[in-house]
Amino acid sequence: MAETSSGGDRLFRSIAAAKPKLVTGVPDGMLAETIKLCEETPDFPYIACAREEECIGVACGAAMAGERAIVMVQNAGMLNSLGAYATMGLRYGLPFVVIVTNRGALADPNGYDIEKREAFDAGVRPMARVFDFDAGNLPDDLIPAAFKWAEAARKPVILALEKRLQGETRMGGEAAP
């Protein structure tokens, strides 16, 4: 079921501002609005993958040709993709952007999401650069800035978007320890 995500349109506009060659992903409720907008735009193709690891491969194919590519997946999907992220993205130093909805936050307490979030913290953060953001309050220049960082660092970057309680602050824009 699609969830209301007040940041969906804002995220799409930030994606479009980065002028990607392609966007690829596997749906999550928090990403549904953005995915629909990506499917409708004539500015770049949205490649709907059957499984998240494929998305990393698709992004690597574009990045190997020097093009900007964006991946959108849920945290459980990122966990499915760590082998590809490491052996292609990190090994070849490919500057693509991965948008991960980090489910299971304090404001997002579905029982089936809790372990995904804990596994994301334990498995992804030690090997990848992750910047955390409030999905309801995204900076307009988020995706262009993420590409600038990835291209300077010569490696992919993960933007973890989460639901937050009103007034909750949690290291916005900073990597978690």
């Binding site: 392609l22 690891e53 494929e54 690597c60 090994r91």
Partner: peptide, 22 residues
């Protein structure tokens, strides 16, 4: 030639991204 460095099976997905880019 684009020699994919892993994991096994990813070449078809990498090729799809390349095909969409070119």
């Amino acid at each position: 030639n684009l020699y994919v460095s892993g994991p096994m099976g990813l070449a078809t997905s990498v090729a799809l991204g390349l095909a969409a880019s070119r």
